[in-house]
Nucleic acid binder design. Structure first.
Length: 778
DNA sequence: ATCTACACCTAC
DNA sequence: TCAGGTAGGTGTAGAT
């Protein structure tokens, strides 16, 4: 740590340090408004003689600058800050594509990547600490900031961002920065152009006008309408591996082999229109090269040269990509399962190969921005894939011994219901189907048995859920959901958790009354306010500046962000940032946007704002549950209507002294002071405010055990409870004994940080690290 | 009550 | 100065 007397001197020292270390890469968690961007803004304000970014660069003559681009792509992909000669990485943006999270705050990313809880301390508190002068406060502030910088690096390290980006650069044959900032077309072209050049092909460059005027695409993939219901018999899920790439290879589909519609070729008087191009082929130029009966005619009526006559560039390219992917997958099998990091890296590598294989189709169909799309070629790929799937469905249903029915299929997958059969039989028949379909198609078209659902629910197209078995030997099923609220990030986690739990109860017990019991218990908790706010936070992506002005209405998240900006312009959300909000009670007839507020606004309102429990239940939870359980003839809405309304408890006014908020160094330093609850920590019933366990439970074994262990360890009852139950969600739900690292259980992302005193090695009192955490917590 | 535009996010 | 594709479900709010 260096100490400097002025901001000027500080910036000079930064420049000196960067020049001395001469790094290739500069990383900030958020480099536009914080980090480098903030420093640059300060430097500009101070009107230094030379721009800071140029001083930090390696080549002062080349421009270094802040990129101000208002188009969607630029804002989304570029780091926004350019320092010539160095790569500037905007970590949160990288993590956004790397991880699938509900929200991408620094703390949430650290938790997801490093399995670490970190406190969030707002800037104004840090500022207060720092201005407190030498001593604890200032040191705490510096320590906090240094720790965050280290954690950013630790995340880079853990995810091997530089290593993997470098690998991809080598795979695609493009430079490091382009891997992160440029699109898929660039990757496809880098690979395709190299291969094309070895065969003396050049890539056509149609104008945007020509591209726009190419014929419209006609083929669409098959998406079956599923029979919506609960399936208690096994359902085998099979899918074609890399369907589109394998169609390209199997039928030699390529720009370089496409001959258009044979009818056109015959009538050579009219020039051949193909994709964005118009060719003037001399009459008879085809007949000498390929016998008409050897032509491959795709199901959309477009002809292709057979591989013997001319092997296509795309087929060759994809062959190599798929072969490499198989090698990587083999390497994953060889590597020890315990080498988690290696496994993840290899997995990411094979996944990126799969991705580039799939976007190769996208390249041929890129209508909006494509540099050389070809509608006929794209149609051929889709239609061949569709026929392959349709033929397979027919074959499966026609087989007399399988007695199978295809109940759903999407593009490259089929769901096969095997009525009255056991799971083991399902696996056997599934393997037979896979083998038969693979044999019935030209290589490398491969049908693979993915999994067996037992049981499952098919809701609609692209929405289903089931207990999944991947091998016949697997004892415990895995909950697997597609498209429904449990996997979507535009619902709050209360919806996701309740739906998942309800489905698990249904699948395990097949007893709807147990589901009802669970759901009613949760509703009661919600209505009486005994819930964690964290489970009721929505977080949706916000793209300010793209909303239709004519519509006159912006989404709630955007509204919340705009309100925050009114008081602090630096609170402007980055393009595509997920902005959290909660729904509170409003005026009668208020629109949703008017009832959406930032979570901290609710926390800090001191009871003025109230969580809109009714909205959450009626508009979010009930519809989600209803979609599933109405299939069983259950009236979820009726459950709620019949539910006795619990009396809502007003937020407790706690004496400031007990909360330790009377001032710094207040005597009430133990954590139990913060958890005075009206509810018994064991049974959740009402209790005396000063007693964490109600009188009845003190007589029950569990409650008595707490009392006894508390006495043995010389703790208060509340302290003893810390190690048994999560204090935030009250129950502990199977997490008992796993609370070593924190007082709050892992299932909740409350962002509160507690430091445990380890001195005595026992369940000692925890001390709140910062006063602020309390507000977040409440 | 039903339809539509818009926004978001997912499956493939 | 660059930007793969389509299908599809659901919530919100205003219009019919």
């Amino acid at each position: 740590m260096e100490v400097h007397g002025s901001e000027e001197a500080l910036l000079d020292a930064l420049v000196g340090a960067v020049r001395a270390l001469d790094p290739d890469i500069l990383v900030g968690y958020e480099v536009q408004q914080g980090s480098l961007g903030y420093l640059n803004d300060r430097a500009t304000t101070l009107a230094r003689p030379e721009p800071l970014l140029r001083q930090l660069s390696r080549t002062p003559t080349v421009s270094s600058m802040v990129e101000r681009r208002n188009d969607e792509y630029g804002v989304l992909h570029a780091s926004g800050i350019h320092v010539a000669g160095r790569i500037v990485l905007n970590l949160w943006r990288l993590l956004r594509s790397e991880l699938k999270l509900r929200i991408y705050t620094f703390e949430a990313c650290v938790a997801a990547v490093l399995q670490l809880r970190t406190p969030h301390i707002p800037a104004w508190v840090l500022s207060q600490w720092f201005q407190g002068g030498p001593g604890g406060g200032r040191w705490r502030c510096v320590q906090y900031i240094v720790r965050r910088a280290r954690l950013s690096l630790a995340m880079m390290e853990q995810l091997d961002i530089t290593g993997r980006t470098g690998e991809m650069a080598r795979t695609f044959g493009i430079d490091f920065f382009s891997v992160l900032t440029r699109g898929s077309q660039y990757r496809v072209e880098a690979m395709m152009a190299r291969l094309a050049h070895t065969q003396n092909y050049l890539l056509p460059a149609p104008s945007t006008e020509q591209t726009k005027n190419q014929p419209a695409m006609e083929a669409i993939p098959l998406v079956m309408e599923p029979e919506s219901r609960l399936y208690v018999d096994p359902v085998v899920v099979l899918d074609f591996q890399s369907l589109y790439p394998s169609q390209i290879i199997a039928y030699n589909l390529c720009f370089s082999t496409c001959l258009g519609r044979p009818a056109h070729a015959a009538a050579a008087a009219t020039p051949l229109r193909l994709g964005a191009q118009v060719f003037g082929l001399p009459k008879g130029s085809l007949s000498g090269a390929v016998a008409p009966d050897k032509l491959i005619v795709a199901p959309n009526g477009v002809a292709y040269a057979p591989p013997e006559a001319r092997q296509g560039v795309l087929p060759r390219l994809l062959n190599e990509i798929l072969a490499t992917r198989i090698m990587v997958k083999a390497a994953m099998k060889r590597a020890p399962k315990t080498a988690k990091v290696l496994q993840r890296i290899l997995n990411a590598r094979q996944f990126s190969l799969k991705l580039i294989a799939n976007v190769t189709y996208g390249y041929t169909a890129a209508g909006f921005s494509g540099r050389m799309p070809c509608a006929e070629l794209a149609d051929s790929i889709v239609q061949s894939g569709r026929e392959t799937l349709e033929n397979t469905i027919r074959m499966v249903e026609a087989h007399p011994e399988w007695r199978a029915r295809v109940v759903y299929g999407d593009t490259d997958s089929l769901f096969v219901l095997l009525e009255g059969r056991s799971r083991n039989e399902a696996f056997r028949i599934g393997a037979e189907i896979a083998a038969a379909a693979t044999a019935a198609n030209p290589p490398p078209v491969t049908l693979k048995m993915e999994k067996v659902y037992h049981p499952c629910v098919l809701l609609t197209k692209k929405r289903y859920v089931g207990y999944m078995y991947e091998t016949p030997k697997q004892a415990a099923p895995v909950f697997d959901a597609k498209g429904i609220e449990t996997v979507r990030r535009d619902t709050c986690s209360a919806v996701a958790k309740m739906l998942e739990r309800s489905l698990r109860i249904l699948f395990s017990s097949k007893d709807v009354s147990q589901v009802k019991e669970y759901v009613e218990r949760q509703w009661t908790k919600i209505l009486s306010g005994r819930v964690s706010l964290a489970d009721f936070v929505f977080a949706k992506e916000v793209r300010l500046g793209t909303y239709r002005a004519a519509h006159g209405l912006v989404p709630p998240a955007a509204q919340v962000a705009s309100r925050a900006m009114a008081t602090d312009p630096r609170a402007e959300p980055r393009y595509g940032e997920r902005v959290p909000y909660v729904v509170v009670h409003g005026e009668p007839g208020a629109r949703l946007v008017d009832m959406a507020v930032a979570p901290h606004a609710l926390i800090e309102s001191g009871g003025r704002l109230r969580l809109h429990a009714h909205y959450y239940i009626i508009k979010q939870i009930v519809p989600a549950l209803e979609r599933v359980f109405s299939l069983l003839g259950v009236d979820v809405r009726g459950w709620y209507a019949a539910l006795p309304r619990p009396q809502r408890l007003l937020p407790q006014k706690r004496p400031a002294a007990a909360l330790g908020l009377g001032g710094r160094g207040s005597a009430a330093g133990t954590i139990d002071a913060y958890y005075l609850s009206r509810h018994c920590a064991v049974c959740d019933g009402l209790t005396h405010a000063q007693r964490p366990i109600c009188e009845e439970c003190r007589g029950e074994p569990q409650g008595a055990a707490v009392v006894l262990s508390a006495r043995a360890a010389r703790l208060t009852e509340a302290q003893a409870l810390l190690v048994r139950v999560c204090l935030q969600c009250g129950g502990g739900g199977g997490r008992r004994g796993t609370l070593e690292a924190g007082i709050v259980c892992d299932s909740l992302d409350c962002g509160v940080f507690f430091e445990r005193k380890k001195a005595t090695g026992e369940a000692a009192a925890a001390r709140v690290l910062c006063d602020l955490a309390l507000q977040d917590f409440e």
